[in-house]
């Protein structure tokens, strides 16, 4: 019960939202910047070089 109460407090304080939103952002950066699948690599190639990601 305590755990549920704590969870509600955390969610209300916005920490949980912030963590989830940040995780979504990191996921987008990872897929666009770092995944080496060749279709993604080719499409994002110029951006990866221009933004300083290790590319190939």
């Amino acid at each position: 019960m305590n755990a549920v109460a704590n969870f509600v407090v955390v969610a209300k304080s916005g920490v949980l939202s912030a963590v989830l939103v940040a995780a979504l952002g990191l996921g987008i950066v990872f897929v666009t910047g770092h995944v080496q699948a060749s279709a993604l690599h080719d499409a994002a190639h110029d951006v990866r070089h221009a933004t300083g990601f290790p590319c190939h």
Binding site: G14, V15, S17, A18, V19, V21, A22, L24, G25, L26, G27, I28, V29, T32, G33, A43, A44, D46, V47, A50, T51
Partner: peptide, 24 residues
Amino acid sequence: GLSVLFTALVYTGYALVMVAAMSL
């Protein structure tokens, strides 16, 4: 065109992280 799309995506990803940190 793909470069514009992916640049917008990368910076949207960074924005999600930054706004989350700003809220905290």
